[in-house]
Design a binder for these strands. Structure first.
Lengths: 225, 225
DNA sequence: GACTGTGAAACTGTTCACAGCA
DNA sequence: TGCTGTGAACAGTTTCACAGTC
């Protein structure tokens, strides 16, 4: 399949073709009228725009179950990430290979970062250690941090942090599950009990049920502490 | 602190107070004019709306590093999730306790689901096994699936799937990292090279740098295959 | 006086619909 | 003729600003 139309791509992605064309147009005019998009060229252009053509060395700090899972995760290499080092505070881990990479002790953290020109760090430590690790990473030159520890990290301006909460996706599922149950109940009791306030409390958040398996706005932005 | 104002909450959440008040108003009128929101009551109302007051039994299928990490994750219990069972296809895992819960063989999958009234399943298997596990979960009564395997699952209507890709967050960081580098370069070359197309290609996506550490719309919705 | 709740205004994002090109 | 690229219409979201209540 050398070319693809916006219609085909849109169907595969579960969006409408106008949106897809408009989005692509922001990257440039990479399509051909009457024909569609050249697949190979399009993939290259999008990859470049997203930074997939670059090599990003990353370090993973905290080699417990999660750190090991991340180290073994195959998806990284194909997206331009290279695990430059695995770091753990436990001296008995030092030297042990995980996913074929020997674990290094956290004393080495600063020199590893500097020698490999690492800008991206992954924190998979227990909550208690996360802020200290974060501070050391930043001091050594890391400017982007992916945090799996259940703490909010404070960082200086210019450093990006993204926090991944493994339970938030479950919570979103439970939220919809609850709605499903509620709708059944409402359907049974001919005229359901009205919601306390505005009618759009029960808004159009039904999933498209199409190919939509991604994390996106399905839940109010504000959560309890 | 018995009560809290929309202003205080908004500052803590990194949003503006009007938005917060409007959002809360969709749940009902739980505040008091001149006073603010009663913290305990507010937490309860939001928890209820999000389904946190319910007990959700979940099963985790695939007890490798990631499955074990999930089983050990403390955040689940506090959000109303109860790990009803751990399931793995490897017979040598059977009976072995992980996070204090004995692993069960996948032959038991259907009976575990039925006996525990499980509606939510977590798939942490290799990609190859995911669709089969998914089909069995659905056949046994699961209607919400959290998929960590790098495959898109097909499910019948009425079943929710959320796919978690551990590398997508890294990719978002790399995307911003690339922009940081690009901006520096542009700043150095007095008048930077113009983007191929529209001016808003480089849009206002700078992170607020405030308390914003969550996954939210920072990246185009359409990704390469 | 302080703070919520909410219409209306401003803005942002999506979809339509079609001119323009291969 | 078929499909992109894009102004213009539309829809949805956020913010303003203030009336209403404690």
């Amino acid at each position: 399949m050398p070319t693809v139309s916006s219609e085909e791509l849109a169907a595969a992605a579960g969006v409408n073709s106008a949106k897809l064309r408009k989005d692509f147009s922001y990257l440039g005019s990479y399509g051909t009228r009457g024909v569609g998009y050249d697949v190979e060229y399009l993939v290259y252009q999008i990859s470049r725009e997203l930074g997939l053509t670059q090599d990003w060395p990353v370090v993973i700090v905290g080699i417990g179950n999660l750190g090991a899972a991340l180290a073994n995760y195959g998806g990284f290499a194909s997206r331009g990430f290279r695990v430059a080092a695995l770091i753990d505070a436990d001296p008995s881990m030092a030297g042990k290979p995980v996913a074929g990479i020997p674990v290094q002790h956290s004393d080495e953290l600063e020199s590893i970062i500097r020698e490999n020109g690492v800008h991206i760090g992954v924190i998979a430590t227990p909550a208690g250690a996360a802020q200290e690790v974060c501070d050391r990473l930043v001091a050594a030159g890391v400017t982007s941090i992916l945090n799996f520890a259940p703490t909010v990290l404070s960082v200086p301006d210019g450093v990006d942090v993204r926090k991944v909460d493994l339970s938030i996706e479950l919570q979103i599922l439970a939220f919809h599950e609850q709605r499903k149950a509620g709708e059944e109940a409402a359907a049974r009791t001919a005229a359901g009990v009205p919601a306390p306030a505005a009618t759009n409390a029960t808004d159009g958040a039904e999933r498209t049920s199409a190919t939509d398996q991604g994390p996106d706005g399905d839940v109010p932005a504000v959560m309890p502490a």
